[in-house]
Design a binder for these strands. Structure first.
Lengths: 138, 138
DNA sequence: CTTGACCCTATAGCTGGCTTCAGGGTTTAT
DNA sequence: ATAAACCCTGAAGCCAGCTATAGGGTCAAG
């Protein structure tokens, strides 16, 4: 079974432009070109695109995906431990981002909770005051 | 007390370029210019920059900060409820981002935990397999 | 009197991951 | 025959929030 770019893109939920972009980025080569110059893709290409998209969905950058793809085509070149290291590094980065956002969330929650939310003018709004003076100011 | 751009930037922990950028963006006007064309800032400018930076630190975008600044200079024009609404909207957005990252974290943790991490070739690496087939494939 | 630290402007570049545009060829359906 | 729907290329644009570059003026110290 062969697919043209639009078909494959639609099947896997992205746009043809994205596929052409991935090709430029070295993430997914078309299987070949037909006489008129149209790209075509086979099952292997389709699986590779699936790989790329799943990797993206769990947070890998395109650079990291390129790295994973290289291991995928030559699995003897790397060990399980190498792959796990990539995943764990990503995990650490994600954890850090979550912690940052949670700190923001806490600060935001504190100022928001302290605010009466009333319909009177915001002259004495505690949110504005917190921003004005920092949280530890009275 | 008056400050030149480099002094103020250093005091509040950002760069002069950032202050000039904020000026272009309408977030912080210099108090004035001295004869040689240098920007100068007074205590009010300094407080405003503090406001901007604190708002940024708790996750507001520059657009949102512009909005908060407008209320700050004319507090009668808006109610406490208006301000709280902005904060709560931001809170919802942050919560959503956290949830997204946590979903990524879970998926990443699952594939990583399932991997032996051994030094053998990655031919049968469960991480690569998960990416190859999706998580529900055996 | 020159060096170095500071300031100015305008414009371009960076990040990542696309998306859009301009301009054109191909295929399919009516 | 013609219109809609698809494909191609190369280059530019988008998002936010800066950061850097080029080219120049100002000012204090040695």
């Amino acid at each position: 079974m062969q697919y043209r770019i639009g078909q494959l893109a639609q099947d896997l939920g992205c746009s043809p432009e994205t596929l052409r972009y991935y090709e430029r980025e070295g993430l997914l080569n078309a299987t070949g070109r037909s006489a008129n110059g149209y790209r075509f893709y086979n099952e292997a290409s389709r699986r590779q695109l699936g790989f790329v998209l799943r990797a993206k969905a769990i947070g890998f950058s395109l650079d990291e995906i390129r790295e994973l793809l290289a291991i995928r085509v030559e699995p003897e070149s790397a060990s399980c431990g190498d792959v796990k290291l990539i995943a764990e590094h990503k995990l650490a980065v994600v954890d850090e981002k979550i912690a940052e956002l949670q700190a923001i969330r806490r600060a935001l929650g504190r100022v928001s909770d302290a605010c009466c939310g009333g319909s009177a003018g915001a002259d004495h709004c505690t949110i504005l005051k917190a921003l004005e003076w920092g949280e530890n100011h009275d």
